[in-house]
């Protein structure tokens, strides 16, 4: 198969980027999108040009690294799929394909298609964990978890933190990511003791990172390769409003860092 690629090239975070057009020929329909880029990179290196930089790791749809917007869709046109699981047979022969990095103030471009997604790590650091005592493994049946709670927690836990929700959102909002991480732990007994401080910390860290605000378009949920539903955002709103209006933590714990413009 033959394609015409328009790919964002940017040498560094401080430099201006631009689209460069690359024709690729004789591509097997069974190559993944990343393997197609590998083929193009071999060609570029052979010509003495810099290869196209892109993030990738597991190439089996679970690490969340392969961030790129393909023809206007984060992770490409196939629903519920990461870029690494997208195959060239999903495109028409001769198609023109535009490839761009995630675009968000909170995700500065480092090089070509690679963006710095540390802003999501800062949201996790602000509360996306549970504190447990180490020692012997607890009895498996020591804490009761209902089937319903386990299922909801698992659905939220499917989030791989790829940032497609931010990339798809017209406002560059990270609400779906934050919602998934907050809800996953709020549903489980292990997450209860830190429930209020978690949601307060994570929402304020999300605001501080320069993400936009949710305006209920749900583009995030449509772009999500793990198909996390937008109702988790409503649950995040509920969790946060509950903590903000009723918890002592909201009054007694200081805001860790103020917004930096």
């Amino acid at each position: 198969m033959d394609f015409t690629l328009h790919i964002w090239r940017q040498h560094g975070a401080a430099e201006a980027g631009r689209f460069v057009t690359y024709p690729v020929r004789g591509i097997s329909p069974d190559l993944s999108f990343l393997e197609m880029l590998d083929v193009l990179n071999e060609e570029l290196v052979g010509r003495g040009e810099a290869p196209i930089a892109f993030d990738h790791d597991c190439r089996e749809g679970i690490c969340g690294s392969c961030a790129m917007v393909i023809n206007g869709d984060p992770h490409g046109p196939l629903p519920g799929t990461t870029t690494c699981q997208l195959y060239m047979r999903h495109f028409a022969n001769g198609a023109e394909i535009t490839v761009e990095p995630w675009r968000a103030r909170a995700f500065p471009v480092l090089r070509d298609l690679i963006v710095d997604r540390a802003a999501l790590d800062r949201v996790i650091q602000a509360g996306g964990y549970v504190s447990v005592n180490t020692g012997a493994a607890p009895d498996a049946h020591a804490l009761t978890v209902s089937k319903q709670a386990a299922d909801a927690a698992f659905e939220a836990a499917a989030c791989i933190g790829c940032g497609a929700c931010v990339a798809a959102c017209p406002n560059g909002s990270a609400m779906l990511f934050t919602a998934a991480k907050v809800v996953q732990l709020a549903m489980l007994p292990q997450g209860r003791p830190e429930r209020a401080r978690r949601v307060i910390g994570m929402v304020e860290a999300m605001d501080d990172a320069g993400f936009g605000n949710c305006t209920n378009h749900y583009a995030c949920a449509e772009a999500c390769p793990k198909q996390i539903p937008a109702r988790f955002i409503a649950r995040l709103n509920r969790e946060f409003l509950n903590a903000a209006l009723t918890s002592r933590e909201f009054v007694e714990l200081a805001r860790p860092h103020e917004h930096e413009e």
Binding site: H6, F19, V69, N71, G72, D73, P74, T98, E100, R103, A167, A168, H217, Y218, A219, C220, A221, E222, A223
Partner: peptide, 8 residues
């Protein structure tokens, strides 16, 4: 974006 994600 050059091509806008119109999703949703």
């Amino acid at each position: 974006y050059r091509r806008i994600a119109r999703l949703g």
